[in-house]
Design a protein around this nucleic acid. Structure first.
Lengths: 233, 233
DNA sequence: ACCTGAACACCGTTCAAGT
DNA sequence: ACCTGAACACCGTTCAAGT
């Protein structure tokens, strides 16, 4: 990391030094930004901080990227690119299920991405491919355009809403859940919030993991879509 | 607004002046913050800007509110307080429906509130009442604790996900939709994104309004919950 | 008790200047 | 062509000082 101490001067131009800092590119900037967001959260992702991570002044970034908004759009599209699309020969139900499970996993790996979803309005190339693939899966499955619009809205609302809630839970492991729950229960006026207290207690005693709810809910959603098709037949 | 020009000096202490700027209170600060967020968005809601709106230095706010986080927690709880809770004698389906429709409307009135949902972790008093009422509605309807947990997760995921998507659409009225859609279609490579193009075209020609999707999806979700109960009976 | 001025350690971005 | 120093107009927050 640290430059060679300059005590030993050489005639030949230092060979390693130029490689230590490869030239900036849009790609390198975006990957460093993704890394920084994963490691330290979205608030740590400032242009100045990103420059620091790349060993460069913040202002240099502007030659490769169109300001901070472009960085945010860019790393969101990198996350979307991680989502497994429905395979062309999937039935609509398998395809939608595969995609939803994969998307939830991607958002769990990059929790900050949910917060970006809402504020970004320019979909990147990966997002365009993604939307087209999901709509195509539904259309091939026999949904009319109008039905596909509703089905898309329903599954994606569920998916993003779940990711949103999962991301904002104050615990991750069952052990952490226990700690948090005990703390809340200790100071919760049970007479005022009996059902809330009962639910928290249940979560503690049953080894509840929120992640398991995802596929349960997803299957109810897919059942609902299936019935849309059946009702028509 | 501007103080009386001091040319005309009076013996009696100015009577109106003190009333022009009533003393700050936590309530006044939070309501001004809500107003500011509604009028100018969350980015305009800075402590300095909020002070300006109240005719006060930013630093004065800290005597009534515990920093900016407390302001954000506070205005989110004001929004939650606007949501109609299930009535005690509602059946579970009416109660859940009433609540979901009311919540979506509240988030549509205050679009910035969705962005707060994810970043805030301390539920306020209105949020506690709200959670307890929804869980109570499900329990009275015959759901076990575990089933109520799943039902809560499913409906709230759908609700928040829908609000999230609705809030991030780049249009509001059908006319705006047309404008936006024409613009996208004009530069969309249709061969690469055939299903996306088809969908956008459909939205334009059918007078599509995204808001109408909400109750369609909600009813599918509630159907799913109903079947959970039936399957058991 | 309530408000404030000055200060600290940050932001994103522009622009003229350096190599 | 690529990078940077200084500057501008902002942040949230602390703290000592004013009334």
């Amino acid at each position: 990391m640290a430059r060679n101490p300059s005590k030993i001067k050489r005639e030949i131009p230092e060979p390693a030094a130029p490689d230590e800092r490869p030239p900036l590119t849009r790609e390198r900037v975006l990957h460093a930004a993704l890394q920084l967001a994963d490691d330290a959260g979205l608030t740590a992702l400032s242009m100045r901080g990103l420059g620091r991570a790349l060993g460069v002044e913040a202002m240099s970034l502007y030659h490769h990227v169109n300001g901070k908004d472009a960085v945010l759009d860019g790393i969101l599209d990198l996350v979307v690119a991680e989502i497994a699309l429905p395979a062309p020969d999937d039935g609509w139900r398998e395809g939608m299920r595969r995609r939803a499970v994969s998307a939830r996993a991607a958002f769990a790996r990059h929790p900050w991405a949910m917060r970006l979803m809402e504020s970004r309005k320019e979909p990147g190339p990966a997002a365009m491919r993604y939307y087209d693939a999901v709509l195509g899966c539904l259309r091939r499955g026999g949904f009319t355009v109008a039905e596909a619009a509703s089905a898309f809205s329903l599954t994606d609302s569920y998916l993003y809403g779940f990711a949103l809630q999962e991301q904002s839970l104050p615990f991750e492991t069952p052990d952490e859940l226990d700690d948090v729950a005990e703390g809340i229960l200790a100071q919760l006026p049970r007479a005022d919030f009996p059902h809330l207290a009962e639910m928290i207690e249940h979560a503690v005693t049953s080894g509840y993991t929120y992640a398991a709810e995802f596929e349960r809910g997803l299957d109810l959603v897919l059942d609902g879509l299936e019935r849309v098709l059946e009702r028509r037949a």
